[in-house]
Design a protein around this nucleic acid. Structure first.
Lengths: 239, 239
DNA sequence: CGGAAATTTGAGACGAATCAATAGCTGTGG
DNA sequence: CCACAGCTATTGATTCGTCTCAAATTTCCG
């Protein structure tokens, strides 16, 4: 029998992530599955949005990783946040919005059109939660940069990624794919790649993590969370 | 003749700021003026929202300053962003939202209920722009903490405050009230108050600014912007 | 006027950056 | 299948920016 939806297994994480944010009714799920079937591939290191340019229609990241980044006058980038499967891209409410940051693909990626929120109240609610979470991650990033030292920043970011990927089934037991170079990590964390390297090695020596061939294993996420003073994220009350 | 609206002069900045964000139709302005007439006073150093607790109805900051902050386990606060007259407080779209940060009054403050967006499309648009701007300021803050040195961080933040206060008429020609201690500045910028002090003095010596009795004067905002590599903020296309 | 808060100053320590070089890995073409 | 190019990761030596601790001074406010 021919498989009608070839990407189904790849697609599950994005859908799983949205479902983890809140109940979705049948029309919403149908619309999302339909949209995902028409997902388009984009190679690594391409611009999905450019800071200051007009944003077209919002999209959903179906698979792969992207980042929000800002390029400084001196050429060095500051990575503002990571966009993972199930995250929205360019979702805003004002008319004729301009991108406040550049969005770059990190890996090969698939994205699809975002079904309109008007389609279902449950869909609108999930989008709102997703948007609120995105802001919460920005706040967490400010705190990381403002008050944590290098070792804590790395640990805290990896824990956030572990949590977020966990919601879509892309992380389990502290283990997940991390398609980032140490330099990219440095650009996110306000450090140099040399120093990130030293701190990663220290974390390895201290038994906090393993990292080989793009695979991260956090040996004890709960313990690491205590070590770096991490706080959980929640944006709405669950009944 | 008796003045019907005693706060009118204090109130203008908040209204001016909203008008600066976009056209507002008559019903929207009427509703805002009406809401502002019932503004309530809150003394300095009170919590308007508490991280993790449910947010009630959104409010508008009419006068005074507030901050979004996160308290770390070790007790030190990280200030995430400043809330100025005309800014929204607790504006979100998801059901039963929880505050992602604590909001503290810095000075004595007045706030009023936020007229519902449903009242007028122009009001909804202005709220959306305000919300998008708030996110843009978070991104700017991440960049400050991630890639600027102490001197640049201070200059860049003061320039942002100058721009934002300028939109409501509370800053003019680089001059504005700054009701913050050097310690608060340090808590926002990921520095110590000792180091903020030294850098402020250096900025004074270099002729970049004056700061006496809570009044800041940026001697040459445009030049300072070049010096710290500052980028402007814009969130939607103006026709 | 008195006391608390905020600012200022100094000396020394430490974390992270910088500069520079080496080693490992990946893919590509001959 | 090997050689080479170009990233990515690793290591070392040194410098620099910011923190820490401590104390003095000024400003603010009741």
């Amino acid at each position: 029998m021919i498989q009608p939806r070839p990407f189904r297994s790849v697609v599950r994480p994005a859908l799983a992530r949205l479902l983890a944010l809140g109940q979705l009714d049948a029309p919403a799920i149908t619309a999302l599955e339909g949209a995902i079937d028409f997902a388009k591939r984009v190679p690594a290191r391409r611009e999905l949005l450019v800071e200051g340019q007009e944003i077209g229609d919002a999209r959903l990241l179906v698979s792969g990783w992207a980042v929000r980044a800002r390029l400084l006058p001196d050429g060095r980038p500051q990575l503002l946040g990571f966009i993972l499967p199930g995250d929205l891209i360019g979702f805003c409410r004002q008319a004729r919005p301009l991108a406040t940051s550049t969005v770059l693909t990190v890996t090969d990626v698939t994205t699809c059109a975002l079904p309109p929120a008007a389609l279902s109240p449950s869909l609108a609610q999930v989008y709102a939660i997703s948007h609120a979470l995105e802001e919460a991650y920005l706040l967490a990033h400010i705190t990381r940069l403002g008050r944590l030292n290098a070792q804590e920043r790395i640990g805290d970011l990896l824990l956030e990624l572990n949590d977020r990927l966990g919601a879509s089934g892309l992380a389990e037991g502290g283990r997940f794919e991390l398609p980032l170079t140490q330099e990219a990590l440095a650009d996110a964390l306000g450090l140099t790649s040399v120093h990130v390297n030293r701190m990663i090695q220290q974390a390895r020596r201290e038994g906090d993590l393993q990292w080989r061939a793009g695979q991260i294993v956090l040996n004890d996420p709960a313990m690491l969370a205590v070590k770096v003073g991490r706080m959980p994220v929640q944006v709405c009350a669950t009944t």
